[in-house]
Design a protein around this nucleic acid. Structure first.
Lengths: 218, 218
DNA sequence: ATAATACGCGAACAGGCGTTCTATGTCAAG
DNA sequence: CTTGACATAGAACGCCTGTTCGCGTATTAT
């Protein structure tokens, strides 16, 4: 950090800061200079400009020069859209069917979306969510109603928790996957440590996605 | 919901939507009409206006009339700071000890914090998080390393999932709690549906908090 | 006192900006 | 073919907006 700090903000400067913050809560865009003038009770636009410069020096806001509404508050007040990601819930996962995969057309159906912090899931590309139905995923420590956040991929690293469809059994399951040395078999290890791993022929296993995160609301 | 839906968006309309979204990721304010025109490759400002009207009708964006940069995308893309909450991870929960409770002084130790979407946890007051150690919470379908988001409270509704310290056994556990009619016993039901509930004397059970959410990063 | 500095006001400028109007083109239904 | 609904261009209008400049008024150090 550089020399930030609230080096004795003058009173009108605090009013400006507070006004911008409230204004952005209400509308979704920053105010104009003149709106600040009125809203924060400043006498002239040039004074607003003056105070804004001071606030910028104090690192409390950033300005895009010569752009209308070009003032944005720095970190503390504002959350970048990058910090949260809306993941579409594309269906239910049940043992007796392949896990649904995202339909690229079905964009952001507002209702069926779960918000998660980016820090939990990393990059948003290829992310989708499944709601678990029934207790068929109990050996993955996942119960009815839990939500699994997946990343679409068919390449996984050893030890990744993934959704696998077993073609010979006609079943989906969530397991940790390890490739055997000969590459012909997969070792599937339940997330539940009290249960034993088992092995399947690699040709009978379709990897449908990688589990990024499991969420249980209560 | 009203009549939302992507009633066959025309191709330039999709470009506009996408441009606005990307623009707002980069700058923090919405673009102007003319910026949209250039950025989305529209031939004239009137065409932008024309498409914007259509998009507004489709509930994909809101407009503040006659305001510069007065177009904001609806719900999915924009995040208010109130939509995310930082929950402090105050300790580990192990079966053989009471579950830690938050120290009100220890504010926002940046490192030991987990970000979650408000929609998962509701009000942020009294929220704290525990990391589960060992597999002692397996009957709550929670494994080593999972994170439990708790709300400090000693009053719970029947059927709430809660952290209980059993004084006679010297154990913490996470169970669904039901008060018996006589108020003297509690029924504790494991989250794992394959396990059976059991009963404890209410005087031997200290309710330490309510489970709001369980998160497993993988 | 003098000068330097910070703070304050209002007006004016130039370009930004949303809106609207007219003219033209496309295409399918009547 | 005509008509009417929709799509497209371009230009013009008029308010919006950030910036600047000249001119005051305090406060403080010299």
């Amino acid at each position: 950090m550089s020399n930030s700090a609230i080096e004795h903000l003058t009173e009108p400067q605090q009013r400006i800061l507070s006004f911008i913050s409230h204004y952005m809560d209400e509308h979704d865009v920053p105010p104009t200079i003149r709106e600040i003038q009125k809203g924060a009770g400043i006498s002239s636009t040039s004074m607003v400009s003056y105070h804004l410069k001071a606030l910028e020096r104090a690192n409390l806001l950033n300005r895009y020069e010569r752009r209308s509404r070009g003032v944005v508050l720095t970190h503390p007040h504002r959350v970048s859209p990058r910090d949260i990601v809306s993941v579409p819930i594309v269906g239910r996962i049940v043992a007796s069917e392949p896990a649904p995969t995202p339909d690229p057309d079905a964009l952001a159906d507002v209702e069926n979306t779960i918000q998660v912090a980016r820090s939990l899931v990393g990059n948003a590309d290829g992310l989708y969510a499944l709601e678990v139905q029934g207790d068929s995923m109990i050996d993955a420590l996942i119960n009815d109603g839990d939500i699994v956040i997946m990343q679409r991929t068919d390449e996984i690293k050893n030890g990744d928790l993934a959704a696998i469809f077993l073609t010979d059994r006609n079943e989906s399951t969530l397991k940790r996957v390890y490739r055997e040395k000969d590459g012909k078999r997969l070792k599937l290890k339940p997330e539940n440590p009290t249960m034993k791993p088992f092995y399947v022929d690699a040709r009978n296993a379709m990897i449908q996605g990688k589990v990024m995160c499991v969420i249980r609301k209560t």
